[in-house]
């Protein structure tokens, strides 16, 4: 069995942002969504953020908070990093928004910029582009948050000889409930603290 260390983790819900257990202070601005308040309070400067759907924004913000906490340069190519995400509702919120644009034949305006986000794995693509992550990117769907599967997929991803680091997590936007838990993991470390019990405790 390989040793896997949690280098950093981030939890985002509708009301809180935690980085490695510490709550980040998010000043609330008027007429600004919760996620964009997080974006602004962290002084992130990445205009592509504003084109993303809520699912991608949520995953992107967690990855951004994690990568900054590790002082990792987003512009450095990362062939040895992979990304695994999972959730319950896939891209359902964006699917519903897209359906609105085609439901009525007299008010029919399908748009490629909405349609592209009707694929849940776009969130992994957005994080990969931002950070030049060139390993594996995969997206899985489970009814409920499953520490067991998150652990299992992480072991599999890090069992690959060419991969050393992994961003993995639960990224959910269901009925406007943001529920994100993301980890940055590194393998072959002295510390071995990534396990199902720890995932449960942190969630």
């Amino acid at each position: 069995m390989i040793n896997i260390e949690i280098k950093s983790w981030c939890r985002i819900t509708n009301t809180k942002v935690l980085l490695n257990g510490e709550e980040l202070e998010i000043p609330l601005r008027e007429n600004t969504s919760w996620l964009t308040n997080i974006y602004k309070s962290q002084k992130i400067d990445y205009p592509k953020y504003f084109k993303m759907d809520t699912l991608s924004k949520a995953g992107f913000l967690a990855s951004e908070i994690i990568m900054r906490s590790l002082n990792i340069d987003p512009l450095e190519p990362k062939p040895k990093w992979s990304i695994i995400s999972m959730n319950s509702s896939s891209s359902l919120e964006t699917d519903k928004n897209y359906q609105q644009t085609i439901q009525d034949t007299n008010n029919y305006f399908p748009s490629p910029s909405v349609f592209v986000y009707t694929l849940a794995n776009i969130v992994t693509g957005e994080i990969a582009i931002r950070n030049k992550i060139m390993g594996e990117t995969l997206f899985f769907v489970h009814k409920d948050f499953s520490p067991h599967h998150l652990y299992q997929y992480s072991i599999d991803a890090l069992s690959n000889d060419s991969i050393e680091n992994l961003l993995c997590g639960w990224v959910e936007d269901g009925d406007n409930n943001i529920d994100v838990l993301m980890f940055a993991l590194k393998k072959n470390t002295k510390v071995n603290n990534f396990n199902i019990e720890n995932i449960k405790t942190i969630y």
Binding site: I83, A128, N131, K132, I133, M134, G135, E136, T137
Partner: peptide, 11 residues
């Protein structure tokens, strides 16, 4: 078999 990302563009 292997999966790899371009890290280039979403579409």
């Amino acid at each position: 078999g292997t999966v790899r990302n371009d890290a280039n563009h979403i579409s």
